[in-house]
Write a protein that binds this DNA or RNA. Structure first.
Lengths: 224, 224
DNA sequence: AGAATAGTGTCTGTCAGACAGTATCGC
DNA sequence: GCGATACTGTCTGACAGACACTATTCT
């Protein structure tokens, strides 16, 4: 089923896009996909797709479905950033993109599988290196800014952490997100006594004092 | 032109809603309209309407047009809050509402004219007193929260102020938004030296020391 | 003088930033 | 002991909260 041009003019295309962030080797990365189909085929873009009212329960559910389909990941937490809209941002006509960002755990980062896309890449969100489709460069900047704002506002990016981690691991992850180093004392003072962090009965060492391991608490929600 | 039911299922209705705030007698108010047409005729709601891709340049422009048409006001500043979506929130089927909030200057508050709506009311956003259409009670709460967050984060609600105002006027307005009193010394210390405030060569008095009058600077933007 | 509001000064507690110091491992 | 990393303690400056104090007008 397709609409006529006249009908197209009355109903905008509704899209969802997701900036999926993760951290590897203390570097913040964002998942980009190379588009398989027109428009903008072979251009790099944030994973996204068209809302399907017949299967999606909400915009967020739609974004979750798109991630499942295109990069085969199930994401627990999606945060809405903002919308992008207008007649000229997509060659198909008047369109709306609702942008989300999501956090993929470090130990799942390698498990992402490309599916229905030409290629995938984990890029540096500060300078992606690829020329991006549509207005996705602006979207990426907005998503990165929203993520940083949350972390600056004391939200812990525990969704990015593996099952067990040390406070130093967590600090490195925050630093990767923010793009600048943090003071150890300040960082530990701030998160000390957070109910989201649960010490576990183990420690990990090397040629140095062993570090306390933590896990995130049950039912933790980012940006709560 | 209308779509068949099948087509309806593939294209969601895209709506914009606006929580238009103002302050009168140091009370925060939000503009509600009583709906003229089905669905939810005669129920109170935030002013809103359907996106028209053939005339709107963006979602924000659409919200501006809706305010012009329904309550005859031209709004300079619109801030996006978030989206609401799903198959059951509107009886017409799968829908998306993009929520904005806006600030209407105190000295324009009486100039709002109802048009294409049954009735208008300036309600207390904390407890509107009317049973609201759709999920507009949730939307109103979200918009109020977004507005408060901005003001708590040092943004000055200068768009709510008349052309000339005193610092005490401004403080009263902030208090009305936040819902609790502020300390005079703290408030003045914080906004002292703000480039957004321009003292004007006048003062206003009564049976007391006259107060310095201010205006907002040219090109001021809220939440910059 | 007194009432009323404008505007300033100051004390205190909290917290971020900076950084030094102590603790505990392997070698 | 030494290197390395974990973890803690402390000094300082900025700032919010609380509140007292001064300033200027009208009556």
């Amino acid at each position: 089923m397709t609409l006529t041009n006249h009908e197209r003019e009355l109903y905008p295309t509704v899209l969802v896009d997701v900036a999926l962030f993760s951290v590897e080797h203390n570097d913040l990365q964002v998942l980009l996909v190379r588009r398989l189909q027109e428009p903008q085929a072979h251009r790099w873009a944030l994973p996204g797709g068209i809302l399907k009212p017949d299967v999606d329960e909400s915009l967020e559910a739609s974004a979750r479905r798109v991630l499942r389909k295109k990069v085969s990941v199930d994401i627990s937490h999606l945060e809405e950033v903002c919308t992008f809209s207008g007649p000229n941002r997509d060659p198909r006509g008047w369109s709306i993109s609702v942008l989300f960002y999501a956090l993929l755990p470090r130990d799942h980062i390698g498990a992402v599988i490309k599916d229905k896309v030409e290629q995938i890449d984990w890029a540096d969100p500060n300078k992606p290196g690829h020329r991006m489709a549509f207005d996705h460069d602006v979207q990426l900047a907005a998503a990165l800014s929203a993520l940083r704002q949350q972390v600056e506002g004391h939200a812990l990016p525990l969704h990015l952490m593996p099952a067990h981690f040390t406070l130093t691991d967590l600090q490195r992850t925050c630093e990767a997100i923010l793009g600048h180093p943090l003071d150890k004392g300040v960082f530990r003072r701030r998160i000390k006594g957070s109910p989201d962090l649960v010490p576990i009965d183990k420690s990990v060492g090397g040629a140095h004092r062993p570090a306390q391991l933590y896990r995130s608490c049950e039912g933790f929600v980012f940006a709560a």
